[in-house]
Computed example of a mutant assay.
Amino acid sequence: MTGGSRGIGRATVLALAEAGADVAFTYSSNEEAAHDVCKAAEGYSGKVLAIQANAEDFAAAKSAVERVHDELGGLDGVVINAGITKDRPLVMMPEGDWDDVIATNLKGTFNYARAAVYGMIRERSGRIVCVSSVSGLTGVLGQSNYSATKAGQIGFVRSLSKEVGPYGITVNAVAPGFIETDIWEQIPENKREGILASIPVGRLGQAQEVAAAIRYLLSPDAAYITGSVLVIDGGLSS
């Protein structure tokens, strides 16, 4: 799993380890947060391995996949979750903010899917799940860069699922809405009330709810689901 040290990533790592899966996750720079995830998983039946790696770096992705094979004995599924936001109206957006978000969110998706998929083809089985966003479905004010990457992930999933379906590999996406993570804390207080009012179920989603959906898509029960986008937004985009 990429981006497993906080938020949805952390919840997914712990949900999988608790269910008995051996899980490796990448983190960018926060070693303390990564250590906390490993510590939280102590006592679970699944092993947890933290790997520092830059999502933008294809060589790092290949190295991470090789390490998973060496230390955990194989790779059955990949969850592509690493992502950043640099929100700003397009007319005020520096080129660097566009490039950084594209490099992490979209190039990172290519990097880890490409690094993992050859081995899955050889084994004729595997699961790939991208953590997209309702921002990629509906658009969000001030998120032209982020929305472009999340819509791009959905197109990527639908295309790749057709390429690798004959090899027993499924490729899907989840599209969370507003989830109670540290990203929510970055939203100005005066905007939160309006956002909550726009969500039909009247509350934020929980990271554990998204993790449960990801766990399902990785499971044998989801073998006939591919090229799909599971929206987890409390009805926001409906």
Rank of each mutant, 00 (worst) to 15 (best):
G108S: 12
S135W: 03
Y44W: 02
D97Q: 11
T170P: 09
A34D: 03
T149N: 05
W98H: 06
G177F: 12
T226K: 15
E18H: 13
V48W: 04
M120A: 11
M1L: 11
V79R: 12
E163D: 15
A197S: 15
Y44R: 03
S228G: 01
S29M: 05
A61T: 03
D100C: 00
G234M: 12
Y118G: 03
I102A: 02
E71T: 00
A41Y: 00
T226V: 10
G168F: 11
E31D: 14
A151Q: 07
V23Q: 12
R6K: 15
Y27R: 04
A148C: 11
V174W: 06
G194Y: 07
A207L: 09
A82E: 02
G194R: 14
A59Y: 00
N81K: 12
I179S: 01
L230Y: 06
G177E: 04
E189I: 12
N30Y: 05
E18F: 00
V157R: 13
A60C: 11
A103Y: 07
V65W: 07
W98N: 07
G136K: 08
A207I: 09
F110N: 00
G73P: 02
A211V: 06
N81C: 15
E32K: 15
A19G: 13
T109P: 01
A21N: 11
D36R: 12
G43E: 12
Y118D: 04
S147A: 15
S133I: 03
N145Y: 02
V201K: 06
I214S: 12
A53I: 08
G119K: 07
T170Q: 14
A151F: 06
V164N: 06
A60W: 10
L14F: 07
Y44D: 04
D70M: 14
R124Q: 15
A222R: 10
Y146G: 10
S133G: 05
V91R: 14
G4A: 08
I225S: 01
G119L: 07
T181D: 05
V117W: 09
A103W: 06
A41V: 05
L137C: 07
L106M: 12
W184D: 03
L230W: 08
A175W: 14
L217F: 10
G202I: 14
S125D: 01
G96V: 13
L49Y: 01
A197L: 04
A148L: 06
N54Y: 05
T26K: 13
E32F: 01
M92F: 07
K47L: 08
E71Q: 15
T226D: 11
E31W: 08
S219K: 13
E95R: 14
A115D: 02
I183A: 13
Q206Y: 10
